[in-house]
Amino acid sequence: MNKSILICGVGGQGTLLASRLIGHVLIEKGVDVKVSEVHGMSQRGGSVVTYVKYGEKVTSPVIEKGEADIIIAFEQLEAARYLPYLKKGGKMLVSTQRIDPMPVISGNALYPDDIIGKVKALGIEVIAVDALKLATEAGSAKASNVVMMGVLSKAWDIPEELWQKAIDECVPKKFLELNKKAFKLGQQA
C-alpha cells in the first residue's frame, strides 16, 4: 500500500527542501518515490504545497483530498487549508507559526482563532511544535523546515542514519551543523 505525505506552508518557508529530504530518505530505504513540487508564481509568499508519495510502485505524483497519511504544515492557516487532504485516521504535524496572508494584513479578512484546537476537536492526532523558536535556537529562523523533519522522524518509522545521510546530501555544507541541530531539536520536541 502506497503512503502519502503532504507538506504545506507559505512560499519561502522551505517546503521544497523538506520534500527533497524526505525523498532522499525514501530512496535510501529502497522504495519507489515521487515528489511533486510547485515552482513559479506561488513561491512569492503564496500558499505552497508539495507531495511525497512512496511504496512499491507510485503512479500519480499528486495527493488528492482524503489521501494524505501525514500532513506537515509549516504554518497554522495552511494546516487548516489542507486539512481536507488528510486521510481518515491520518496525522498532522503543525508548526505553530502564524504568517498573516495579504487579506488579513490589509484588514479584509480575519485570521481564525485556535486552529490547532479545532483540528484536535475532530479527533485528529496533532503534534504541534513551535518550530520557529527551535530553529532560532539552532541558529536561524529559516531552519524551521528541518525542525519539522525532526518532528516527522519521531512519527515515522525510518532509521536515524538515513535522515543524517539525506541532510548531508541536500543541505549546503555551510549550513550543515545548523540544520543538524535544528533536526535534533525537532526530534526532542
Partner: peptide, 19 residues
C-alpha cells in the same frame, strides 16, 4: 469519492505577493 475531514472555519486565501 474520498472521505474527508472538514473544519468549520473560514480560511482566508493566501495569494502570492511582492516580496
Amino acid at each position: 469519492t474520498a472521505e474527508t475531514y472538514t473544519l468549520d472555519i473560514n480560511v482566508p486565501v493566501r495569494p502570492p505577493v511582492m516580496c
